[in-house]
Computed example of a mutant assay.
Amino acid sequence: MNEDRHNPEMVSLISPDTVIKVSSTLDKSVGKKNLVDGSPETCWTSQQGLPQTITLILPSSSPRGVIPKLLSITFQGGFVGRTCAIHARTVDRTHSDIPGKANWRLLTYIYPEDVNRKQTFTLPSLSDAAFIAPPSAPISPSGLSTLPATASMPSHFTDLGNTYTGNPTSEMEHDVNELGITALRLTFETSSDFFGRVTVYDLDLKGYLA
C-alpha cells in the first residue's frame, strides 16, 4: 500500500524523551512533569510574575525535525495565560536555548479563554508565521490582559475559539517540503490571575515528522 506522504496521520509530538523547561514552579507538588502525565488531577503552577514560559524540546527520528499543527492546553480557570506568544526553533539554526537568539522565530499568538476546559489551537506553518504581528495593546502591571475582546488579527485568523486556521483550503494538509522545528516555546505575557500566576493541567502537541 502506498503511503500518502502529503496527508499522513498526525501523532503526538510529546514523548518520554521530550525535555520540558518552565520559567518557574510554585512548589514540587505542582512541577513541570504534571504537564504531560495525562492525569486530570495534577497540574503545573508557576510562581507569581510575568512572563511565564513553557519550553518543549522535541526529539525526532527525522533529521528535519517535526511540524507542529495542533496545540491543546487545559488551564485552571482564574489562572489562565490570556496572551501567549509561541516561538519555534528551526532545524537550520544552531541549537541555542537562549530567548532572542536568531534560531527562535515567532510562530503565532494565541488568546486562550479564562475557562477550565481543554482548548485546542491550530498552529501556522513557519512560512505563514512571517505574517503574524504581536499585539499592540500594553500589559497592565497586574498582568491582566488589556487586549479588547475584539482585538484585531491578521486576515488569516478567524474567530473559532481564538484559533489560527491558516489557509482554509489546505489547513491540515502536510507539505513534505515544510520546514521542521526542534523546539516550541509558549510565553504567557498576561494572566487572568492578579499576581500573574499560570496553572496548566494538561498540554499536548500533535503534528508530523518533517
Results as ranks from 00 to 15, higher is better:
Ser23Thr: 15
Val36His: 00
Lys33Gln: 15
Ser23Asn: 12
Lys21Phe: 01
Glu9His: 09
Met10Ala: 15
Leu35Met: 09
Pro8His: 10
Glu9Val: 09
Lys28Cys: 12
Gly31Pro: 00
Ile14Gln: 04
Leu13Glu: 10
Ser29Ala: 14
Ile14Arg: 00
Lys32Gly: 02
Lys28Thr: 11
Val22Leu: 10
Leu26Gln: 10
Leu13Arg: 00
Ser24Met: 12
Ser15Lys: 07
Lys33Phe: 12
Lys32Pro: 05
Asn34Pro: 10
Val36Gly: 01
Lys28Pro: 13
Val11Tyr: 00
Pro8Asp: 05
Ile20Asp: 04
Met10Cys: 03
Ser24Pro: 15
Ile20Gln: 01
Gly31Asp: 08
Asp27Gln: 08
Leu13Ser: 02
Ser24Tyr: 04
Lys28Trp: 08
Asn34Val: 05
Ile20Ser: 08
Val11His: 10
Lys21Asn: 08
Asn34Asp: 08
Lys33Cys: 09
Val11Arg: 13
Val19His: 11
Ile20Val: 11
Ile20Arg: 01
Asp27Glu: 15
Ser29Tyr: 09
Ile20Gly: 07
Leu35Ile: 08
Val22Cys: 12
Leu26Cys: 12
Leu26Trp: 13
Ser29Asn: 12
Leu26Asn: 04
Pro8Arg: 12
Lys33His: 02
Asn34Trp: 12
Val11Lys: 14
Glu9Trp: 02
Leu13Thr: 08
Lys33Gly: 10
Gly31Glu: 09
Lys21Glu: 14
Pro16Glu: 02
Asn34His: 13
Pro8Ala: 14
Ile20Met: 05
Ile14Asn: 06
Gly31Thr: 10
Asn34Gln: 13
Val11Gln: 07
